[in-house]
Design a protein around this nucleic acid. Structure first.
Length: 271
DNA sequence: AGTGCGGCCTGTCCGC
DNA sequence: TGCGGACAGGCCGCAC
């Protein structure tokens, strides 16, 4: 569910509630996530102070005075700040308790998320080590994308969503960025011109920044750490708009699948 | 090496 | 109203 703007919104929402505070309790009700929650995690966390909360791609990294928690929300994960102890629902798998008044609750119906612990540099963790550059960072440029995409036969959309190339670009925003750049999602990555790469990178950065500013996109169940939806859905140009007129030219938006993911595009504006 | 697919899960929606 | 099937925002790991 949550893509980069949603994860970033959650990070910003949670930070003032938990950074600088000490974990007083950890309640794990179900350890069965995409990878099982490590045994004894409770013991490692209790008594530790949270120093910082960072995002890398769609991972959240909780830096403690020693060790770090790596958390991914998968498709349906959410993190909520509770100011009192509300009875947990069916899929509320973990509570991180920061004293009497603050509780961070992890919910994940589909259990595609993961929660890991490392005492080494988390950026070097096997799941993070091979991630490509952050899309909003300086490293991602049109030239970078151009060089990386040469000789690639993959559809450009699948290529954009490959986390080793660029980290953190999911299905919604890949579709939106391709519309902005006027590129058909099925076009082979190796055939994108340098100028198109520049436009595409600008499109990726722009759509992600605007989505963060609106608190992310809520399609069905995404909510931020305060339980509120994001409003970027109202600004989506193609995603989930199959059969509706393109805002730019009026042609009906089409949908087709690329690598098991739905693509949405305007057949006239995107070539 | 690059590519494409299956699978992990539950919930929801649609058509019959 | 019930039921099967398709689909969903992610991503790992495998086989070719």
């Amino acid at each position: 569910m949550p893509e980069l703007p949603e994860v970033e919104t959650i990070r910003r929402g949670i930070t003032p509630h938990v950074v600088g505070k000490k974990i007083t309790d950890v309640i794990i009700r179900d350890r069965r996530l995409r990878r099982p929650i490590p045994k004894g995690l409770e013991k490692k966390l209790i008594g530790r102070k949270l120093r910082d909360l960072e995002r890398r791609a769609k991972y959240l990294i909780f830096y403690f005075d020693r060790g770090a928690l790596i958390l991914h929300l998968g498709m349906t994960g959410s993190l909520r700040i509770l100011t009192r102890d509300i009875p947990p629902g069916k899929h509320d798998h973990v509570d991180f308790v920061f004293g009497k008044k603050t509780r961070l609750r992890f919910r994940d119906p589909r259990r595609f998320g993961c929660i890991l612990w490392t005492e080494d540099n988390p950026q070097q963790h096997e799941l993070l080590r091979n991630l490509g550059p952050e899309p909003l960072g300086k490293e991602l440029t049109g030239d970078y994308l151009f060089v990386k995409s040469r000789k690639r036969t993959q559809a450009i959309k699948a290529f954009l969503m490959d986390s080793r190339i660029i980290s953190g670009v999911g299905n919604i925003y890949a579709n939106e960025a391709l519309f902005t750049a006027g590129i058909h999602p099925g076009k082979k990555a190796g055939r994108i011109t340098r100028a198109q790469c520049t436009k595409l990178v600008a499109g990726i950065k722009d759509v992600l920044k605007r989505a963060i500013a609106k608190g992310g996109t809520t399609l069905r169940d995404y909510v931020n750490s305060e339980g509120e939806p994001g409003y970027f859905r109202l600004e989506l140009k193609v995603y989930d708009r199959k059969g509706l007129p393109c805002y730019r030219c009026g042609t009906l938006i089409k949908s087709q699948r690329h690598g098991q993911r739905s693509s949405f595009y305007c057949p006239r504006c995107q070539r």
